[in-house]
């Protein structure tokens, strides 16, 4: 399986900037994919490569994962026991958001001022001068073919974590148990890296506990449970457009 990454540019499309962004994403995939036995992260986990022999980006991601563990009170943890019981470094919960944020920065740095970059539901948005805000549909976790809200968004990052699509794939690092039930949490913030980390942590904490996000005033969150009930941080109500 793979993950689609789509880029929509409404103004100032520059093919060399777009090629650079996708080249970066492919490079990150080669380095950090656990599904590639020859990736640096796989070799690190097998003990055939030392951290010092990895690209400096590995150290950067390792440090970010540690920061994420601290900021979420342990609700995000990249060091988890694998199927064989050995602790493995699995940064994939952080790497995607980080890589896509950087890809967005690459576009911005090269003069692409308007884009929607969407990697499996994790999105970086930039709105060019004179253009309307992006309309982002939030899937209903109980019925992903339906949207439960539409957000009109400017320059921001959007990440959703949940149990809808892949079933119980999120593990509570504090207990080792998989998160059950049907729930999704969408987090908006200035950085996709952190929106993604906080969305995952919010699912672990439970959707009725969004108060801890108040410690991050630049962030907003929307939680949807299996019955379709929606909880949102106060600042988000102004962004929701009913269909």
């Amino acid at each position: 399986m793979g993950m689609p990454i789509s880029l929509h540019v409404r103004q100032g499309a520059d093919t060399s900037a777009i090629a650079a962004a996708f080249a970066w994403l492919r490079r990150v995939d080669r380095m950090f994919s656990l599904h590639r036995p020859d990736s640096q992260v796989s070799e690190l986990n097998r003990g055939v490569r030392a951290l010092a022999d990895c690209d400096p980006l590995m150290r950067e991601v390792l440090d970010l994962c540690e920061l994420a563990r601290e900021r979420t009170g342990g609700c995000f943890d990249a060091l988890l026991p694998g199927p064989d019981g050995r602790v493995a470094f699995d940064p994939s919960g952080l790497v995607k958001g980080w890589a896509v944020e950087r890809a967005g920065d690459l576009l911005t740095d090269r003069g692409v001022a308007d884009f929607s970059l969407n990697a499996g539901g994790d999105i970086v948005l930039r709105v060019g001068a004179g253009l309307p805000r992006w309309r982002v549909g939030v899937e209903d976790p109980a019925a992903p073919e339906r949207l439960c809200a539409v957000l009109e968004l400017g320059d921001t990052a959007v990440a959703t974590s949940g149990t809808a699509r892949r079933g119980a794939h999120i593990v509570d690092p504090r207990t080792g148990r998989r998160i059950g039930g049907t729930v999704s949490v969408t987090v908006l913030g200035p950085s996709l890296t952190w929106a993604d980390v906080y969305a995952t942590a919010a699912v672990v904490r439970g959707p009725d506990d969004l108060d801890w996000l108040a410690a991050h005033p630049d962030h907003q969150a929307l939680a949807v449970d299996g019955s379709g009930s929606i909880a949102a941080t106060p600042g988000l109500h102004t962004l929701v457009r009913r269909r």
């Binding site: 929607s116 309309r135 982002v136 969408t186």
Partner: peptide, 11 residues
């Protein structure tokens, strides 16, 4: 909508 967010669609 221009784009859609949801739990990661990897599979």
């Amino acid at each position: 909508v221009d784009t859609v967010t949801g739990a990661t669609a990897t599979s």
